[in-house]
């Protein structure tokens, strides 16, 4: 878009779709804002009186709110760390010329194709179940007491499930990046006499900085709104131990029937997501520049 004319034409041509997108976004947002200012309970309200910002006040001062924020951050952070470190390791392994490489790659990617609810159910009933689960069986082999994952370590259990789902994604992106690494640079590093570990840190890791940023960005977007895995396994409990922000809003709206409060919570979640987004785009912007 070099000249002024082409820029103007581009804007005119893009205007209809941007306009449509804007309406698509603004109408639900406006309705949500409107609901968040009402005392609107699905069970009891005959009338929905205007209550100002008190929905926000109650949502923000609810101790459950802070707990859920902490849980959200823990979940996102832990899954990011596990998937990136694990994905890096897997990518490095899969990049080696091994026998049955193609098959191994497909096997590694496959968890990504399993639906969230299905994988959560499998983990819940086949893997982590304290009586029938494989983990319990392994523990019994060693004579140990089986762990009641969802009772004692609910958030850890959910982190494991979600990390298992996202590990292939990270591994795949990082593997592609590794494969695009220039052979002559590898040769140059060999001539320079870089042993494997300095080679990894001085040359390979900087090459992977961009793909890692992309993985962080994409995963964060999806991990902030994890819901199915919690719904299927722990139901947010015990207590609030595995309730994240998304799940808290769901509880407010559909278990306590408080539409006004849920709308307020949703808007708070939007604001928080935007804060994270600004932070991430900064990070990405810095890493994606030349």
């Amino acid at each position: 878009m070099a000249t002024q004319e082409t820029r103007l034409a581009a804007r005119l041509l893009a205007a209809p779709s941007i306009g449509l997108l804007f309406v698509w976004m603004v109408v639900p947002l406006a309705i949500t804002i409107y609901f968040s200012l009402l005392n609107y309970n699905l069970q009891t309200s005959v009338t929905t009186p205007f209550v100002g910002l008190s929905n926000y006040y109650y949502f923000l001062t609810d101790p459950a709110f802070l707990t859920s924020i902490m849980n959200t951050l823990l979940l996102v952070g832990a899954v990011l760390v596990i998937t990136i470190l694990g994905g890096l390791g897997m990518a490095l392994l899969l990049d080696q010329p091994i026998w049955g490489q193609g098959f191994a790659r497909i096997m590694v990617i496959s968890p990504f194709f399993v639906m969230a609810t299905v994988s959560a159910l499998i983990w819940k009933n086949l893997m982590m179940h304290p009586v029938f689960g494989i983990f319990a069986w392994i523990a019994s082999l060693f004579g140990a007491k089986p762990i009641d994952w969802f009772g004692d370590y609910p958030l850890t259990a959910i982190i494991i499930i979600v990390a298992w789902q996202w590990l292939p994604f990270a591994a795949l992106i990082l593997l592609t990046a590794l494969q695009s690494f220039d052979q002559e640079q590898k040769d140059a590093a060999q001539m320079d006499g870089a042993p494997p570990i300095p080679f990894f840190f001085h040359i390979l890791l900087p090459h992977l900085a961009r793909p890692i940023t992309v993985v962080i960005l994409i995963e964060t977007i999806f991990l902030l709104s994890i819901f199915a895995e919690i719904y299927v396994t722990t139901g947010g409990g015990p207590g609030l131990a595995s309730t994240n922000l998304t799940f808290l809003i769901y509880q407010t709206a559909l278990l306590q029937f408080d539409a006004g409060g849920a709308a307020a919570g949703g808007l708070i979640a939007v604001v928080l997501a935007n804060i994270v987004a600004i932070f991430l785009t900064r990070l990405v912007g810095k890493n994606l520049e030349g």
């Binding site: 002559e184 640079q185 040769d187 140059a188 900087p206």
Partner: peptide
């Protein structure tokens, strides 16, 4: 060795 693509470390 000097390579055809220079093979400098970009970062």
């Amino acid at each position: 060795m000097v390579f055809q693509s220079y093979a400098l470390y970009p970062h």
